[in-house]
């Protein structure tokens, strides 16, 4: 499973920035308690990072016990179960929700109306920031410098052409475009406005519920390199994890079932700095589901040409 803590929970100092307003360090682990311990260790205020919140570290002691957890109201956003979602995945999540209801949880249908716009907005904001953050890899001070260059421009052009992979170059170009004069308002600024709306969606939702459950992805994992020729299709698989990232909320994705050896991801999203609820709910789910991961059958190794 993987955890993304609240934006500002963990210092970004020492982390190579991709999208500064979205980047957040979180653990990947085998179990919820392991993830919680790691989050405890990672979190806390840092005077070297202005965006790191001045709060004490998250503590394991804050995680509610199962009886307390059972009192949480669970919000199920209808936008995450639309026609674009794989029917098997939607079915698995729905059956888990029914089990939770039997366990005594309050299940509330909620709406996060700007979900459809979150993905495009995310890519505008993230790539704009990335284009600026990656400017420092220019061959002057840090990292690779192309050899045999004649002029300064030549050095920049060749260093960056040789040093970055295709996907990174694509992102730098899209991000640069989104910030260009004449397009800033239409792209970057609009992306930021959508971000505010997405955040407000969640704020309204948490007036009605304590925790939100969604599928982590609309589709099953695809094969390495399978969608390489269609980056938009590839970006689309992020559609359910991006809104919580845009809102800076803590979220956890755990494997709730396996179909034909492939996992179905369940996403647990809590309010800002409510990692306690996120871990409480996740631990409850882990215990309730007790999923045994199948042993993967490894195909012959094939190299990723797009790194």
């Amino acid at each position: 499973m993987g955890v993304r803590p609240t934006y500002g929970r963990v210092s970004r100092y020492g982390v190579v920035s991709f999208a500064s307003s979205l980047d957040q360090v979180g653990p990947i682990s085998r179990s919820v308690p392991d993830a919680a311990v790691l989050t405890h260790v990672l979190s806390g205020e840092d005077p070297m990072d202005s965006t790191c919140a001045p709060y004490p570290p998250f503590s394991n002691a804050d995680i509610p016990a199962p009886e307390e957890t059972r009192k949480m109201r669970i919000g199920i956003p209808r936008e995450y179960f639309s026609s674009g979602v794989d029917k098997v995945i939607a079915g698995e999540i729905s059956s888990i929700v029914r089990r939770l209801a039997k366990e005594g949880f309050d299940i509330i249908e909620i709406s996060l109306p700007h979900t459809d716009y979150a993905l495009e907005a995310y890519y505008l904001v993230a790539l704009a920031e990335a284009s600026s953050n990656l400017a420092r890899f220019d061959g002057v001070l840090y990292g690779k410098r192309a050899q045999g260059v004649k002029t300064l421009i030549d050095m920049y052009r060749r260093t960056r052409s040789e040093g970055f992979g295709n996907e990174v170059k694509r992102r730098i170009m899209l991000g640069t475009y989104a910030l260009s004069s004449g397009y800033y308002d239409e792209f970057y600024l609009k992306g930021m406005k959508v971000r505010t709306l997405v955040r407000q969606d969640f704020e309204h939702a948490y007036e009605q519920c304590d925790i939100v459950l969604t599928p982590s992805s609309p589709c099953f994992p695809f094969k390495l390199g399978e969608k390489i020729s269609d980056p938009y299709q590839m970006y689309l698989t992020d559609v359910f994890t991006v809104p919580s990232a845009m809102a800076g909320l803590p979220s956890l994705s755990l494997n709730c079932a396996y179909r034909k050896g492939l996992p179905v991801g369940l996403q647990v999203i809590a309010g800002p700095f409510r990692e306690d609820r996120m871990f409480g709910m996740s631990r409850f789910l882990e215990d309730m589901l007790s999923v045994e991961p199948p042993m993967p059958t490894l195909p012959a190794g094939k190299e990723n040409k797009d790194g």
């Binding site: 100092y13 190579v16 990072d49 202005s50 420092r136 840090y142």
Partner: peptide, 10 residues
């Protein structure tokens, strides 16, 4: 020096 991973604090 703008090294990767560093952050500004005002």
């Amino acid at each position: 020096l703008g090294l990767p991973g560093s952050l500004p604090v005002l």
